[in-house]
Design a protein around this nucleic acid. Sequence first.
DNA 1: TCCCTAACAGGAGGCTGTCTCCGATTAATA
DNA 2: TATTAATCGGAGACAGCCTCCTGTTAGGGA
Lengths: 196, 196
Amino acid sequence: MSRLKSGTEMDTSKPMRADARRNYERLLVEAKRAFAARGVEASLEDIARQAGVGIGTLYRHFPTREALLETLLRERFDAQAAAGREQLARAEPLVALKTWLAGLSASSADYRGLSEFLAAALDDETSPLYASCHAMQEVASQLVEHAKAAGELRGDVTAQEVLLLLHAVSWAGEHSPGGGGLPRLLDLVFEGLRAS
Amino acid sequence: MSRLKSGTEMDTSKPMRADARRNYERLLVEAKRAFAARGVEASLEDIARQAGVGIGTLYRHFPTREALLETLLRERFDAQAAAGREQLARAEPLVALKTWLAGLSASSADYRGLSEFLAAALDDETSPLYASCHAMQEVASQLVEHAKAAGELRGDVTAQEVLLLLHAVSWAGEHSPGGGGLPRLLDLVFEGLRAS
DNA sequence: TCCCTAACAGGAGGCTGTCTCCGATTAATA
DNA sequence: TATTAATCGGAGACAGCCTCCTGTTAGGGA
């Protein structure tokens, strides 16, 4: 979105040429479809082919797979962060935290293998996903502190641990036989985080 | 080991030729090294090269990556299953279960990406790892039932869920910044499984 | 309307990896 | 030592990642 340079935002650079922009949008549409269908490791050549574009064009717009994913996820991540800040005002901090985490896990669920990618991005400052994920950690941190202050969450648990466990649960959800076990697993794990 | 046809066991087929056996063993040594160093996705061509053997030879002995892994893991898995049966006699069933799971997670930890592989194998009956993993599920099931019967474990949790959570924790351990967070994560998750 | 040029398109090609096939090689046996 | 069946191992087909460079084109200025 920000790379479309499409008017409403600060335009420090020239707008994209019409053909470039057309291709950029087609690539995003096809990437979304491919990632949803085949997981986050879908072939980039396939995506380019489906978009009716050469592989070189894909790589110019998105130098890495992470960059492509980041563009697809940014909008959702922003919304998720906003939702988190709303939950901060809520009366029951533990419910707030859990609700927010459930939303986050739902995001992880629609591209197979995404948890893996996100977990890797958190260890790599050069990844385009790193910044988005870090913003998420910021929000998580605040929700965790709220719940601790209210005495509803174990005092010895860190936000980082909570997020890691959430990623783990999302990962497990992908490998759950039925597939619909994610909320159940989240419940189980959350039980252990509650203050005793 | 069983494929070595090395005397002490029932030999329904002829023993391997000396050169075949030599290569088989070299491949196992190098595979172990490579998986430990580069994770479970290490290049099979590299392994063959390091073993001083052609790629064709590797594929003849181990038709798939799973087969190679299975041979490397079988011994450990057998030991783990035996350990589980010993734990069954123990007085505190919850401690027994946790001890056993900790041992299992330690096994998962030495090849990066192994959890992923094991989780996938559980969904694929044709995988050579499926049988080994299923035996593990059998033991887990008994330990879980014991702990439930003693009123120490939540009654509504299944062995499958417990194992899935264990895999998830192992996975998270691989992605934990410090790297030594696995026991801690196991503790946290276990807290939620305890009967309340 | 036409032309010029910076921006863009996109495929060839190098690289790495998986997996198969089959002629060359060799261990074991008589 | 000669025979032969088991084994070896690399060539080659294929797929994916990523880069480079030539040909093309959009769009502002004359």
